[in-house]
């Protein structure tokens, strides 16, 4: 047997083709346009689409030339001639799993706290908002924030994910808070990324003062600098290429320089609708310097796989990928 064709491409092609014959004319029109773009994006997409289009075309031909009933009788006869009962059970179990999976995934990937947040994005969803004071807030994939604006301060609590903040000057301080500390600004632009045990601030313009939890003196961070700070008071300044990071953010790319792989995978996971499961400890010792597309996590994973032969990436479906280190032979 051939290895099955790229499952992802097949599944996507199938989903597109179903949309092409939707009952809704507007959806059909949109699907036609997007399907063309999808096919043009990758030769594997085009191949998967061609295989299915050929099949659907053949079925339409049966319908049009009046041989619907011979086609139906033929399929029936074939299936009755050699029933394959053993496979039925497997198919049912697979279907059951497929039906259960989406709901379970939703539970896995969207913590309840995020659903209650003032602003939140799903995986792979980016959103840009203008706040009441004119400041702009852009949320990356799987991000969530709470907003608290009053007469004296404007506070954005970053619950999850990464945000780009473009603060409008209005006299009140603008504060971005995480459990690891708070960033205080007047008018400036910066990126904040919250991880489980630390927060990373990247300054694009002007400066801010950061109060790290458990340390009394604020740290001033200027444009072109980054600060990683944790709740144990640890903080590390480093220099960054601000314009590059901002471009990357706008193009939904992840730029990392010598970061542990688990941190990179966390960012990819936020931008992927399925689950990426990995052994944090096993992959943390691998360090990555890369520019990865966050809006095409399949490609990003492939790029990682190409560069780390020791990495074993298994794709059970587009919705479930596991990553670990291949056993040494």
């Amino acid at each position: 047997m051939k290895p099955s064709p790229c499952t992802t491409a097949s599944e996507q092609a199938a989903a597109w083709i179903v949309r092409l014959s939707s009952d809704d004319a507007e959806e059909r029109r949109q699907a036609e346009q997007s399907f063309l773009a999808w096919k043009a994006a990758d030769p594997r997409h085009a191949e998967a689409a061609a295989r299915l289009e050929k099949l659907v075309g053949q079925l339409a031909a049966f319908r049009q030339d009046g041989s619907r009933s011979p086609a139906r009788q033929a399929i029936l006869a074939a299936r009755q001639s050699t029933p394959r009962p053993a496979r039925r059970l497997a198919a049912r179990l697979a279907l059951l799993a497929a039906l259960l999976l989406p709901g379970w995934l939703a539970l896995q990937t969207t913590p309840a706290s995020s659903l209650l947040a003032d602003l939140h994005t799903g995986s792979g969803e980016w959103q840009s908002t203008t706040l009441a004071d004119g400041s702009r807030l852009a949320l990356g994939g799987s991000a969530a924030v709470d907003l608290q604006f009053d007469a004296k301060t404007r506070t954005v609590t970053l619950l999850r994910g990464q945000i780009l903040v473009d603060v409008a000057h209005d006299g009140r301080p603008f504060i971005v808070a995480t459990p690891h500390g708070s960033i205080r600004a007047l008018g400036t632009r910066f990126l904040v990324n919250r991880y489980a045990d630390e927060t990373v601030l990247e300054m694009l313009e002007s400066r801010v003062a950061v109060s790290v939890v458990g340390s009394d003196r604020p740290i001033v961070v200027e444009a072109g600098q980054s600060l990683r700070f944790a709740a144990d008071g640890g903080a590390r300044l480093a220099s960054i290429d601000g314009p590059l990071l901002e471009d990357a953010w706008r193009q939904r790319q992840l730029v990392v320089r010598d970061r542990p792989l688990d941190e990179v995978l966390e960012q990819l996971a936020r931008n992927r609708s399925g689950l990426i499961r990995y052994d944090r400890e096993a992959v943390a010792s691998l360090h990555v310097s890369a520019v990865l597309p966050l809006n095409d996590t399949d490609r990003a994973l492939q790029l990682l796989a190409n560069n780390f032969p020791a990495l074993r990436i298994r794709r059970f479906s587009p919705y479930f990928v596991t990553i670990d280190r291949a056993e040494a032979h």
Binding site: S67, P70, L76, A77, A78
Partner: peptide
């Protein structure tokens, strides 16, 4: 082969 034979026969007969 058995399937194909059954299928082809049924197809042509109904046709």
């Amino acid at each position: 082969r058995a399937r194909r034979k059954a299928l082809e026969q049924a197809y042509l007969a109904e046709l």
